[in-house]
């Protein structure tokens, strides 16, 4: 029975007889209150809408039809492709991608810098980078809004320094949303990259240096391929929540920079009140996210093996 020293994950069996009782509560709670609700949501996306929220229990493809086609005001014109919602999804993907890139550009050097500190100070640096993440997302987004608005501290500082003559309009732009998303999810980029660089064997870089590779060549041709799984993990962890984000686009982007999150919210909490359509949009978002996760899992598995 003894599992011995260096117990591998899942091999100790001290609680084997009680396994079912230990695991069952988590299965029941998450199964009943998340897995089944997602299936109910799928069902709702195929029902008929009731005005001002709710559904009529009648099968209908109207939600998906509304997403893809425009049939005119009375629904009897010939169907043409409807671009409004596709455009919102594409914009969300672009915004999330830019935010991910921003996180990577700032997050990689930061993670590298932290990973090359002395072991004792690393945890302090990591702590400093992660603390803001635990501050309420709404408060963080609001602070960013306060900071970059037209007569906010950033503009006032630049005006006082004479760098600019008129305030830069940053709020309600694509940039504000990207900055907000960056601010929301940056630690998700830093942590996996840090973990990868920390495990990286720097004698590889030293060997390359001995062969007269310059340090940027070493970075891009030696280190980057090795820590790639960490970078991909970071990108996924930032991209996925950015795609469905609600607060950053809503507070920093204004009405012009609608993203998926706002579109869905509007179907349930706002004036649109179209539950099946909201459920359909959420289903499409979930499919995209699961797709990204599956691609990640496929790519990651062979790399994790060695």
């Amino acid at each position: 029975m003894a599992a011995g020293i260096g117990t591998a994950q899942g091999t100790s069996r001290t609680f084997q007889p009680m396994r079912l009782w230990l695991i069952a509560p988590s299965w029941l709670i998450i199964g009943f209150f998340l897995l089944i609700p997602v299936l109910v949501m799928l069902l709702f996306s195929f029902l008929t809408k009731e005005f001002r929220g709710g559904v009529i229990w009648e099968f209908s493809l109207a939600a998906y039809d509304q997403f893809l086609f425009d049939r005119g005001l009375f629904g009897d014109d010939p169907a043409t492709l409807e671009w409004t919602y596709i455009r919102i999804f594409v914009r969300s993907i672009v915004q999330a991608a830019v935010a991910t890139l921003l996180c990577l550009l700032i997050g990689f050097p930061t993670a590298f810098f932290i990973a090359t500190r002395s072991p004792d100070s690393r945890s302090v640096w990591l702590f400093l980078v992660t603390v803001p993440y635990w501050v309420n997302l709404l408060i963080r987004t609001m602070s960013m809004k306060f900071l970059i608005r037209d007569n906010g501290p950033v503009n006032e500082l630049l005006l006082a320094l004479g760098v600019i003559d008129t305030p830069i309009a940053m709020i309600n732009t694509d940039f504000a949303v990207q900055l907000g998303l960056f601010y929301s999810y940056l630690p998700f980029m830093v942590l996996p990259i840090y973990a990868a660089v920390e495990r990286y064997d720097f004698s590889l870089s030293e060997a390359a240096a001995d062969l007269y590779a310059d340090r940027w060549t070493i970075l891009f041709r030696v280190l980057l391929p090795v820590v790639r799984p960490g970078i991909i993990a970071g990108c996924i962890l930032v991209f996925v929540p950015s795609l469905g984000a609600f607060l950053a686009p809503d507070l920093l982007g204004g009405a012009k920079n609608f993203m998926i999150g706002s579109l869905i919210e509007e179907q349930f909490k706002g004036n649109a009140g179209n539950w099946p359509f909201g459920a359909a949009c959420a289903m499409i978002l979930l499919t995209m996210v699961l797709g990204a996760l599956i691609i990640y899992a496929r790519q990651h598995r062979p790399a994790a093996g060695n």
Partner: peptide
Amino acid sequence: PEIVTAVA
């Protein structure tokens, strides 16, 4: 995604 959990 949180918004999907919320809707579901």
